[in-house]
Amino acid sequence: MGYIADTSQFEKLFSYWKEEYEIWAPRRFQGGGRFSDTDAVRYARVDSPSEIEFEEKSAYSWKETVFPPSETLFYFSQNHVEEAEAPAKKRLVFLRSCDLAAVRRMDQIYLKNGDPDYYYARKRDGLAFVLIGCPHTCENGFCVSMGTNASDNYDMSVDVTDGAYYIDCPQEDWSRKLEELGAAPAEHKPSRVTENKVSVRIPDNLTYEVGKSTMWNQYDKRCINCGRCNFVCPTCTCFTMQDMYYDADGKVGERRRVQASCMVDGYTDVAGGASYRKKNGQRMRFKTLHKVLDFRERFGYQMCVGCGRCDDICPEYISFSHIINHLEEGMKEAQADDNSK
């Protein structure tokens, strides 16, 4: 059902949600940006609709709702282990179409790739989704090319225009609540981006052979392996474990998992001191082919959702969509090289 709610009605809906849910959404942190006098927009808990940033794309993705940068799993002492407390409430997350498409990718890895991940599942269970409509494309996104611009598996969608909340609400309890609050019934479908400034084409003949191309070499120097592209990515799921001891005796402490990045030093370190993918170009190749080839081969659909956050944040202006669009040429080069042998 569709509705138009005013601010006060939406606030009341919010209060109703809060009885059951902890609400996560893109939030503006004034002065919280990397550079002086800049803001940060990232996911965080919100207590009222006014705290939600509806306009600017969040620099960091929805994934922090269920997969924070650092998370304590359990506490241990010599003979005792205590699990870290699960969130007291279910979570409701405001997110855009690209991020909603990313939920499926996250679930794929954490729930359907072998045994379900316990710590992910306990946050994922009962997760509710409110889609934020996209009336216009963002700068670097290419959701249309990736087919992630029209996610419809939401509990509710909302477009905010001049203080009016245009709602589509398949969730029946919430529909009833909206009616009870006096929201005006009106058919509404969330606004969608139908054209991006950026489009990509992943070549049909893409194989790992493209790794032989020289296209990766430029990133040896251009990339600074900071990992921002991975940390902001709504589909990057890698983590590493840390056993953190509180004391020098090494008997009492906690086990954490923290987000890991295939671009950052240490990712391919193995016992004995070896490290694979030392060059940043090799890491870029690995990341790219995981996003647009390897995942698809395993699960039958593309991993990258085209949100463009990796482009937005790269301090060295390395564009992932630009890389994707060079794969075709890279394949030709790699195959020509093969033929000449």
């Binding site: 924070p68 940068p69 650092s70 900071c226 990992g227 923290v258 890991a260 990045s261 950052v264 030093d265």
Partner: peptide
């Protein structure tokens, strides 16, 4: 809570 120990 936002530190991933990357060392940057």
């Amino acid at each position: 809570d936002r530190c991933v120990s990357c060392g940057a």
